[in-house]
Amino acid sequence: MANRANTANTADTASTGADRAGAEPRRGGPERPAASHRSRRERPSSSRRRFRYGPYLLILPSLAVLCVVLVWPIIQMVWISLHSYTLRHLNSGSPEWNSFAHYVSILSDGYFWRVFANTIAVTAIMVVLTMVLGTLVGLLLHKLPRWFSTIVAVGLMLAWATPVLTASFVYRWMFWTERGLVNYLLQVLPDWLVGSGWDDYNWFIDAASLFTILILIVVWQSFPFVAVSVLAGLKSIPHEMYEAARVDGAGPWRSFWSVTFPMLRPLFALILILQIIWDFRVFTQLFVLANGFQNRDVFLLSYYSYQQGFAATPANYGMGSAIAVIMTVLVLVITAYHIRMMIRQGELR
């Protein structure tokens, strides 16, 4: 991270040299009229001097908040993860350096790897399902007449806008063992189709069935965003391109892969990254579905970290932070490519 910032910074400094007046040339805009140059030169020098610090003053409030709330805790997180640090250390004695003991014990623990694998698998399923379903619905909305697609879009908004906590409660209730709607429907459906014994099936014990609900909640809440984004993207593709593809004899499948996908590739890349980040950190839904920290079969990384840091007795901040560090590294690795692309693509200009 520091490295990347440094290189970028050097490049920036170089370009700053070309424009020492302190103002940026307008991106892609017409040449600055000469008059503006003159007008700036005519400004009193005191104003210019004051302005050199201007940008720093402007970013100062944001930077201060970000440092206190995000930057410093991220550094702290790494430090804490390298120390024996529990609730007891808060009140008596200070945390002790423990030469990577947390990492050694986690990485050699079969349980941690199970949680790790579950996290990857659950996230992957969520992301893939969300992307596929969202894209299909986006295409569908594009095909439907305007009035009907508006109605469906409003429905999507409802799913999207529901607070995560509320959504989790509703799904817990729908899948609830007794009087839950899903078990009732499965019981009513013919046994040859869905099997029997649903009337008192408990969805919340086994990891597989609990994760099924978890995935369902997350997909339900995220696919509208993908669908609406894809729809917006589709509207920007000129109709002639599809015409051309059709003349070439392409069916819907081929025209999707030869026209739609290439055109929307940046959009898809972006949505994909956002989905990965969002789905990877899923916590609240699990908090409601698992209802506590006693069922260790259903932990995901974020949940495990929280459990160690707050629910374990005594709270083990060091261990919780070690898990959090691993989680953060994982997210940054997954998104590294994306971050690099954004930095390259003139995001920084």
């Binding site: 920036d12 970000l66 930057v71 980040i277 929280y306 919780g320 995001e347």
Partner: peptide, 20 residues
């Protein structure tokens, strides 16, 4: 540039990770 890169990276860090 450092500031913008910082914003980009910070967006990626899960809040759940730094809560402790």
């Amino acid at each position: 540039t450092a500031f913008v890169v910082l914003l980009l990276i910070i967006q990626m860090v899960p809040m759940e990770a730094i809560i402790i």
